[in-house]
């Protein structure tokens, strides 16, 4: 049985279920488990459930929800359904598949690898060793199609975002900011520190797996 910290409306057609005030593995597991449960067995009128770091947002069509639950208004009806589902929700390993390995080329040239090393007063090689020796969790996807928020970065590499975001970060850039890492799936503006490039596509519009990563997966990086 899982107790949410709170359930709040995001709009008249969506609610957000908060599992805690801080990002923890457990809060994130709950968020992903609830989203999976609902997406596998949607209630009448549900559009989709979307997990984030420590919350799940459920979007619904108010007209269909009201038709299916005529006795109360839509928002409270959805909240009741979600609370019932949470009561029976079991935490499992969301994705059983083995750890996904992303090969990348460390790049001390044009971008920020040297800057990260200098600022943290370690060598470029140490940056790469620290970065590649950890296993990361996909906490959520967002920002861009296929952009996965990976955590958690070793404290020795933690840096605030760039003061001036770049207008164009190339697709395939492996980047870090704060306790997070990510791979840019598309060319886009971005404020994270780029430490390398991968040729593994993160977003493939027409494929069985549109995105290389999904919330709950595990990822390791290998420098080549």
């Amino acid at each position: 049985m899982i107790e949410p910290v709170r359930i709040v409306p995001l709009s008249e057609s969506a609610i957000t279920v908060e599992f805690g005030d801080t990002i923890t593995l457990e809060n994130n597991q709950k968020a992903i488990a609830l989203a999976n449960e609902l997406n596998n067995e949607p209630f009448d009128g549900m559009i989709e459930a979307v997990p984030a770091y420590k919350s799940t947002t459920i979007y619904y069509d108010i007209f269909s929800v009201r038709q299916a639950n005529s006795e109360i208004s839509g928002g409270p009806a959805v909240e009741k359904i979600v609370r019932d589902r949470l009561r029976n929700l079991l935490l499992r390993d969301e994705v059983k598949a083995q750890t996904k390995v992303i090969e990348f080329t460390a790049d001390a040239g044009e971008f920020d690898l040297q800057y990260v090393a200098d600022t943290k007063q370690i060598s470029v090689n140490e940056v790469i060793t620290i970065f590649t020796s950890a296993e990361y969790r996909v906490f959520m996807l967002g920002f861009l199609p296929g952009f996965a928020y990976l955590g958690t970065i070793d404290e020795r590499l933690v840096l605030p975002r760039r003061e001036k975001p770049r207008q164009r970060v190339p697709a395939g850039s492996v980047a870090i900011a704060g306790r997070q890492a990510g791979v840019y799936p598309l060319d886009s503006p971005g404020g994270w520190h780029i430490i390398g490039q991968t040729s593994t596509p993160m977003f493939t519009p027409v494929a069985d797996n549109i995105t290389a990563l999904r919330a709950g997966m595990r990822v390791r990086f290998e420098a080549v």
Partner: peptide, 9 residues
Amino acid sequence: PSAAVTFGT
């Protein structure tokens, strides 16, 4: 921490 948003947020 990043969380979901919607049209009109």
